[in-house]
Simulated scan of single mutants.
Amino acid sequence: MDKDKLQDRIDGYLSGKGSPEARREFEEEISRDEDLSRELDDTKLAVAALELAEDRALKSRLQDLEARLAHEGAPNTEVSGVSTPKPEAKVIGMNRRKGWLRLVAYAAALLLLLAAGWWAIAQPAGFDAQQLAMDSFTPYQNIVTGTVRGDNDSSAEAAAFAEYDAGNYVAAAEQLSALPASAKYDFYLGQSLLAQQKYAEAQAVFSSVMGDPDFPLAQEAAYYNALARLGTGAADEARNALVEISDTDGHPMQDEAKALLTKM
């Protein structure tokens, strides 16, 4: 069957279209056809990833809006159309005024010296690549559970992702490695390895996953691959990868890449 037509059938099924009989027939076909089942799982994963990206983008926009509103909502002492009485100006003697000016000048000079010293201290000759990698790492949300068909695979998958969701990354990595070969399992295996600071192993996994053009989370894998590279100490390689991500409009990890680049 033509791939576009097959995708249309999958999209229709996931959107609830079709008669009950047609849907049952399609489900029976899925149970017999491993390739069709895989396509269905990949589509579910892509939809979940898109929804997650949209949620994150919406949260970011709301935070920006909240910050602007807070700034614009700062108290204004002047009310339109109402003249607010101003305190009478105090007359300060010339000698006292000169004394205050000297004090202000001394304070300003001191602040300049302190600012210059702080700026010099705050400019490190380098940065701790591993620490920055971990500070920038947040395990990707589990959007896979429930997509695998077959009782045995489902049970094994559920157990692996239960460990992942609980933050038991050693057990999660072990159980994910035992699941059937799949880019989506490898993606979360890389997450589990990165959480354990096994940077080289995680980088190897993400490199493989991000090269799969049909994998819905390939772009996300590229960002985590950059984090893993940073953790191994390959800061220049990581920076180049992050620049590419930050320059790609619509990339789901564009904001994260830009934020990380400011710290490198």
Rank of each mutant, 00 (worst) to 15 (best):
K3R: 13
D4I: 15
D11A: 15
P20Y: 06
E25V: 13
E25F: 10
I30W: 01
D33F: 07
E34A: 13
D35Y: 08
D35L: 09
E39W: 09
L40N: 02
T43C: 11
A48T: 02
A48S: 06
L50Y: 10
L52V: 07
D55H: 08
R61S: 15
L62H: 13
E66T: 15
R68T: 15
S80F: 06
V82R: 00
P85K: 06
P87F: 05
K98C: 11
W100S: 12
W100E: 14
L103I: 13
A107C: 10
L111M: 13
L112N: 07
L114W: 06
W118E: 15
A120Q: 13
T138F: 04
G150E: 00
D153C: 08
E163G: 04
G167C: 02
N168I: 03
L176V: 01
S182W: 04
K184A: 13
G190N: 00
L193Q: 01
A200T: 07
E201I: 03
S207A: 11
M210W: 02
M210V: 10
D212Q: 09
F215T: 00
F215D: 04
E220V: 11
A222G: 05
Y224R: 03
L227P: 03
A228K: 03
R239N: 12
R239F: 11
N240I: 07
A241D: 03
D247C: 05
K263H: 07
